[in-house]
């Protein structure tokens, strides 16, 4: 069908001024690089640095911190969005 009429959402959420495309792209790259590094660390740290460290403060804590950082980062990315 694909005849859905596009009606822009009028709900204004947060009137953050829109960034220019260059700035947006720079932020996009930085966040992707950061997230990739974070995700690689979820493999590298427990399997290499904390291998055979049998304590709760080791892999258990690291993976929990990793998840908290990933959650904060994801939420931070969504705070840029504006519903205009």
């Amino acid at each position: 069908m694909h005849t859905g009429v596009y009606t822009p959402d009028k709900t204004l959420y947060k009137r953050s001024a829109s960034m220019d495309k260059h700035k947006l792209n720079k932020k996009r790259i930085l966040w992707v690089v950061w997230l990739l590094a974070l995700i690689i660390s979820a493999y590298f740290v427990p399997f290499v640095l904390l291998r055979d460290v049998n304590q709760v403060e080791a892999s258990f804590l690291y993976w929990t911190l990793f998840a908290v950082l990933a959650i904060i980062s994801t939420i931070k990315i969504t705070t840029y969005w504006s519903d205009k």
């Binding site: 997230l35 995700i39 979820a42 427990p46 892999s59 993976w63 998840a67 990933a70």
Partner: peptide, 17 residues
């Protein structure tokens, strides 16, 4: 504890959203 890492890597995948 690997089970925790497995499920939290999945959760981090939500950054894709």
């Amino acid at each position: 504890v690997g089970a925790l890492g497995f499920e939290l890597v999945y959760l981090a995948g939500l950054s894709l959203v």
